[in-house]
Design a protein around this nucleic acid. Sequence first.
DNA 1: GCTGAAGTACGACCGCCGTCAAACTTCGAT
DNA 2: ATCGAAGTTTGACGGCGGTCGTACTTCAGC
Lengths: 107, 107
Amino acid sequence: MDADRTPDHPDLREVTLQRVLEALVDPVRRSIVTQLATAAGDISCGGFDISVSKSTATHHFRVLREAGLIRQHYAGTSRLNTLRRAEFDRAFPGLLDAVVTADRASA
Amino acid sequence: MDADRTPDHPDLREVTLQRVLEALVDPVRRSIVTQLATAAGDISCGGFDISVSKSTATHHFRVLREAGLIRQHYAGTSRLNTLRRAEFDRAFPGLLDAVVTADRASA
DNA sequence: GCTGAAGTACGACCGCCGTCAAACTTCGAT
DNA sequence: ATCGAAGTTTGACGGCGGTCGTACTTCAGC
């Protein structure tokens, strides 16, 4: 039954600050988050402006997902990514805004 | 002239978000920052509740200093550490509060 | 001056993480 | 049914960063 091709998304209450910061410290992942925050819509994995191989990208998406920052669901062969903004803000107030703001400023 | 035993402190305008996050991602360093934010006063290097050797502690303090998070100045043989709160907040609005708040919550 | 206390500097070690290529899977379209 | 597009998985590699011990420096106090 093709099982669920939808990967596991953690409950935000089980995500530690440590995990979040480890996710956000990588420039590529931070760029992904900023692009998502700016676009304010779903973006497919291939739709990002990143400069790494596909396998590396997969790795980064998983880290972001396990840190509770993004949600992924399939649409055909593509995988769409969304920011879990509201939930994340509730768990880590102000953090996402501060990082995205600072990241935009350094571009 | 005992030269200046005071180490170099970067201008906050020259500190990148990357450097800041690299500093804050380490649990020991984040603990130092949180302790400083809570105490709201100077603390000597030996006055922190950390569980690493002296040489490792020195390393962490340098990283925090170079990330513009703390200021260090000598008082006798001790080195006093202060949060550069106001300056830092101006450069990275909301970031310190978000991290410290989340870090306290996870204790 | 000595001695001890507080940090720093220097190497060395080790584990982790970002990176990629290659093989594979899953789906859509022809 | 076949092919290609989109991602994933696995394994390997390389470098960076946290850690420590040891030796060194600087200051305070006796």
